[in-house]
Design a protein around this nucleic acid. Structure first.
Lengths: 238, 238
DNA sequence: CGATTGGTTGAGCCCATTCAACGAATGTGG
DNA sequence: CCACATTCGTTGAATGGGCTCAACCAATCG
């Protein structure tokens, strides 16, 4: 075992309740530990996997921040998600045993690799684990429905407001500040995710800043007026 | 047992290989049949389920056509998908045991209800079934990534072209014509799904018609020039 | 039959894009 | 260390694609 690939111990993990073992008994988590989950670092800018790579493992983000994105034949790309501590990466690759998007670390990160065939075996003997996993997949589908709503029927201000509130909530769940956000991604990444151009994102951030809703200094964003942001995120259009 | 709720027999089902039992052995399909899957009709316009309904069963579409849509507090709605023979409905509801969208029959249809707790038990003893189900969920996630790409970075012509090609392909897989499409949904539904207004959809269909790519007569659409449509569906923007 | 729903088309408008210039921050090699 | 390139972000001006508003038609249904 090399220094960079340590046996992880979900039982001791600070984010256990955010991650795959959420809701499992100590005994069950111990079983999970026995069978899998090696932890290894991924440095900023590195690909965790690429489109077309064979799918062998799921990855649980144990530290850091990732984006996933699709690359289209004509060069356009679409960011499909941002992923932080406790979230699973690679779910979309199960169906044809091949990764269908790129996963890139946006800061120095670490992941726990979960060999999927072993995981499926374990799911057979641990109903609870399988149940949690089903829910995990289902939640991802529901989450993407929300993004379809965002992309399909919201205007730019709304999209950005909701994006920031979502990020803040997710950080808050991880015991970080829910008002001081450090964006790990570029304006272009945000724009791609939200179906906007980077200039539009920049202008919106400036506008929110000027109105006193946010304080924006580069990638440091502080939410000054959460209520205003919530209002922005649910304007009636029609 | 009433006349409208018949024990279905996946083993004899014409769409078995399109549906949940795909890839299962005869014996396995028999087990599936023993435990679940009652078939019942859903008439045009009826709700199969609504947002907020408790989640108890998945549904396999055995005939007909459904749309799923989100209803937002301010009245806006977003169509999240169209679903035909062999596709599963309700996957997005597993995670919090409550439906998070509406499912509405767009024509007289029929579904097989699959009580989810029983299904999970069966998954525990039939690794193959569980494996297929995992793939099914994963494919749904990957499909939605594609829609994010569509909504986030394609222009209106491309969106509609791809939508029609996707529909045609799915009909073709079900042994129906791949060039003669009967749209089951309104222009407004299409627009909602594609992030466009109904007038835009109408104009685009007229344009494709005038250019000889399609023949459009109300909800009857015939693909006259598939190559042209494919080209429309992959124009480089930038 | 009138009422309602669904679809088409036109004219004008507006929000986000495009194109462009510039500034700040970071990194690199001589 | 500085000169330079590169990446990232901001801001302005002009454009245009899809939206809004509106009129009208066709089909369907009580």
């Amino acid at each position: 075992m090399n220094l960079h690939e340590l046996k992880s111990v979900c039982g001791n993990c600070g984010i256990r309740e955010l991650c795959l073992p959420a809701g499992l008994s100590d005994e069950e988590v111990h079983m999970l530990d026995q069978h899998m989950a090696h932890r290894h670092p991924v440095r900023k800018g590195e690909y965790l996997y690429r489109m077309g790579d064979p799918f062998r493992s799921l990855f649980a983000v144990s530290a850091g921040f990732f984006k996933t994105s699709l690359l289209h034949a004509d060069g356009r790309s679409q960011v499909t998600g941002f992923h932080m501590m406790g979230e699973l990466l690679g779910l979309e690759a199960i169906h044809n045993e091949e990764h269908v998007c790129d996963a890139i670390a946006l800061e120095d990160s670490a992941v726990c690799a979960i060999p999927f065939d072993q995981f499926e075996h374990l799911g057979q003997v641990m109903a609870n684990l399988q149940h949690r996993f089903n829910k995990n997949l289902s939640r991802e589908i529901a989450r993407e429905h929300g993004i379809m709503m965002l992309l399909g029927s919201m205007r730019s201000e709304e999209r950005l407001a909701r994006f920031l509130l979502d990020l803040a909530d997710r950080f808050a769940k991880r015991h970080q500040s829910d008002s001081e956000i450090i964006l790990r991604m570029t304006r272009e990444d945000i724009g791609s995710y939200l179906g906007l151009k980077l200039e539009t994102v920049s202008r919106l951030l400036s506008r929110f800043h000027d109105e006193g809703t946010l304080e924006v200094r580069g990638r440091r964003v502080r939410i000054l007026d959460r209520q205003a942001l919530i209002r922005r995120g649910s304007e009636a259009i029609s």
